[in-house]
């Protein structure tokens, strides 16, 4: 069973390859970062978790997708100032420049260089392609300089580069992440409970421009609701209660409809009920949605997958089922 708790594996594997490469005199930095499948919860939260507190943060809980990701290779240059990258990778360039500035002053610091991205994360549907690229880039530059960055430091640099980042770089625990401030508001636990998530694209062909989206404006009542959902998720993760986790995700999904409605959500809800699922999560800035099932509901999830396909919606992921049944129908252009 693919485990949501093991997100660092691939990064470590690539690093090993790199050590050998460095010994051969090939100087480059490599980094990797996973994709995600939207959020389990996203909203506006009081800093200390109580509704009377006035300072609020927009924050989210990411659902990581470790079998997809972006790989960045940093080729340094001593005579070239700035960072070369293909034009569509503006955020990646910014991330690389930020990271270079961060490590500037060390012996052997690169002045600039080139970033090469290889990614199998679908773009524009809310699976975190952008943050994945940016995080991989920051890690690649850090890797070249032999710098260890904590997940929070990577998060801060990523937010500086792209304004708002999901929390895939915080890969050693489940957090409530202030995605515009680069701050961890709360750590819920080491990993999400085992569960199955059947993902699909609710609006195939449509791309959501994250940068063009206006940030959600939640009123006092909604902030109060998010406080309750946060408390419920705290319990769900601590006790491994997938049913409660599903309820939190559903509530967050319903609240999000005011900002970025998902077509055919009602049909997906009906399927969820019919097949005994426990909740529905979405990308709050994208088109993907995921139906959440208990970890032992494999057969129900597979039957539901066929029903989703019959609706004409492409399957984006099947988290929590073993690799052989995990398939992607997405065209990763």
């Amino acid at each position: 069973m693919a485990d949501l708790g093991f997100k660092g594996n691939t990064v470590r594997r690539l690093r090993e390859v790199h050590v050998v490469a460095a010994e051969l005199g090939v100087a480059q930095g490599v980094g990797w970062a996973p994709a995600h499948h939207g959020e389990l919860l996203q909203g506006t939260f009081a800093d200390d978790g109580t509704t009377s507190e006035r300072r609020t943060y927009r924050a989210l809980v990411t659902l990581p997708l470790p079998h997809l990701g972006s790989r960045a290779v940093f080729h340094p240059s001593q005579d070239h100032w700035g960072v070369i990258g293909t034009p569509e990778l503006a955020k990646v360039r910014r991330a690389a420049v930020r990271a270079l500035r961060e490590f500037g002053g060390r012996p052997g610091t690169a002045k600039g260089g080139q970033i090469e991205i290889t990614s199998d994360v679908p773009r524009g549907i809310g699976m975190g392609s952008s943050t994945s690229d940016v995080t991989a880039t920051i890690r690649a530059v850090a890797d070249y300089h032999g710098v260890f960055l904590t997940p929070e430091e990577v998060g801060r640099l990523a937010v500086a580069a792209e304004c708002a980042s999901d929390s895939i770089m915080i890969d050693d625990r489940v957090v409530l992440f202030a995605h515009r401030d680069g701050r961890v508001l709360e750590t819920f636990g080491p990993a999400l409970p085992p569960m199955i998530v059947l993902g699909c694209d609710t609006d195939p062909g449509r791309e959501v421009d994250t940068l063009a989206m206006r940030p959600a404006e939640h009123d006092d009542h909604e902030v109060a609701v998010f406080g309750v959902l946060r408390a419920a998720l705290r319990r769900a993760i601590a006790l491994g209660d997938v049913g409660l986790l599903g309820r939190v995700a559903t509530a967050s999904t319903v609240l999000n409809e005011r900002y970025l409605p998902k077509p055919r959500l009602a049909e997906l809800h009906a399927l969820l009920r019919k097949h005994g699922g426990c909740g529905i999560q979405v990308a709050h800035s994208g088109t993907v949605a995921g139906l959440i099932f208990p970890p032992d509901a494999r057969d129900a999830a597979l039957r539901c997958r066929d029903a989703v396909r019959a609706m004409g919606l492409p399957i984006t992921c099947l988290i929590g089922l073993d690799e052989t049944t995990t398939e992607r129908e997405m065209v990763t252009a």
Partner: peptide, 20 residues
């Protein structure tokens, strides 16, 4: 309306301690 709204904190506690 802040009277009923203030009880979100009580609901938070109940949900965290008791679940559903």
């Amino acid at each position: 309306p802040e009277n009923p709204r203030s009880y979100a904190s009580v609901a938070e506690l109940m949900v965290e301690a008791l679940g559903q």
